Structures are given as C-alpha cells and as structure tokens.
Computed example of a mutant assay.
Amino acid sequence: MEVFLDIQIADELEQYQSLPTDEQLQLWVESALADRCPFDEPELTVRLSAEAEIQELNRDYRGKDYATNVLSFPFEAPPEVPLPLLGDLIICAQVVDREAAEQGKSSEAHWAHMVVHGCLHLLGYDHINDDEAEEMEGLEREILARLGYEDPYQDEAP
C-alpha cells in the first residue's frame, strides 16, 4: 500500500527539536493502515501543531478548552465521490513530549503511539465504551509491537 502523506509543521515549531522525521511519520501511518484501510492508495494530512492551535481546534470541534495530544478529523466523501482521502491528524508536539516525560516513555515511542492512535480513529475505531477501547488498544499494542515499541498501556491498571 502506498500512502500519500501531506506533512505540515506549524510555524511555531520551526526550532522545535524533537519532531519525528517524515520517514518515521510515513512508517507509522503505513503500519497503522496496513490491512485495515479501504483504499489502495489512501491520502491523509498529518499536521504537527503547537498548543494554542490544537487548543482552539479542541475547543471549537469537541467543546473541550485545553490542548490535547491528537485530534482526528475523518473525511467522509459522498458515496458518488470515490476519493481515497482519509482525513487529517493534528498532533501537538508539546503535549506529546510532556506526556512522554510524565509517563516515562521515549518521545519517539509516544509519537508513534499518537500517530497510530489517530490513524485508527480515521479508520472508524473509537474508545468511547469498554468494548471499543479494548479492541482499539489491542490493535495499537499489536501495531506498535511490530514497530519495536513497548506496550503503551503496560503501566495502566486493567
């Protein structure tokens, strides 16, 4: 599967040191979509944002006025328009790095988790109820293990 990835980096992050490379983002997206995506050549945007931008989006679209780690905006084309566009992921660099430090994880591992998590949301997975959360977290564990990362939920109580 070839994924067409539009990577955008907010101007505020020009000097930010711990952003993933384009190659890492591509690998993580392709790994998340493999064998799950309805398109042969899907397209999506990954935007690396600063806190103010993601807080505004979180407030405006989810009614939650704080900076979050990742937002997913799935694209739903009308049935008569066969576009392979999955949607947009917005990932906040500062929040991801802060959470990685708080959770004792490497920044890279947490970035990979957030990309995989966001991609699964674009595919329709969710974690609103326990059954959905169990399925989605199981997929995240499987994908991240194949990429060589530890279980992102290993320190959480069952």
Score class of each variant (00 low, 15 high):
S72C: 05
F75A: 10
L57W: 06
Q103Y: 15
A50G: 13
P84C: 01
E108Q: 15
R47A: 11
D88R: 10
L48S: 07
C37V: 01
E76A: 08
E41H: 14
P84T: 03
D88C: 06
F39Y: 11
E56N: 08
E76S: 06
S107W: 14
R59I: 03
A34F: 12
A109D: 11
A109N: 11
I90E: 06
A77F: 02
L83P: 03
R98G: 12
P84L: 03
Q94M: 07
L89Y: 00
V70T: 12
E76T: 06
K105T: 13
D65E: 13
A109F: 14
P78T: 02
N58G: 04
V29R: 08
E43M: 15
A100L: 10
A93G: 04
D60C: 10
I54T: 06
S31R: 09
T68S: 14
E80V: 10
S107G: 15
S72P: 01
Q103D: 15
E80W: 11
Q55G: 00
R98V: 05
E102H: 15
D97I: 06
D88A: 07
N58E: 02
E43I: 13
S49T: 09
R62Y: 12
A32E: 06
P42A: 08
A101K: 15
A50T: 08
P42N: 10
K64Q: 13
A77E: 00
A34N: 11
A50Q: 11
L71F: 01
E43G: 13
L48K: 13
S106P: 10
V95Y: 02
A93M: 03
G87D: 04
W28L: 09
L89A: 00
A109P: 10
D60T: 11
P84Q: 04
A109Q: 13
E51W: 09
E41Y: 11
A109C: 14
F75T: 05
S106M: 14
S49H: 06
P38A: 01
P78Q: 01
A109T: 12
R36E: 02
A52I: 06
E43F: 12
R59T: 03
N58F: 03
S31N: 12
N58C: 08
Q103G: 13
P79G: 04
D40G: 13
A93T: 04
D35N: 10
E102M: 15
A32Q: 04
V46E: 00
L83F: 06
A32I: 01
L33E: 01
A52F: 08
V81G: 00
L33R: 03
S49Q: 08
V81M: 04
P38D: 01
S72L: 02
R47G: 05
V95T: 09
P82D: 05
Q55R: 03
P79F: 08
L44D: 14
L86F: 01
E80M: 12
P78M: 06
P82Q: 09
D88Y: 00
L89E: 00
D60H: 12
L85F: 05
G87Q: 04
D35M: 08
C92I: 03
S106N: 14
N58H: 07
A67I: 08
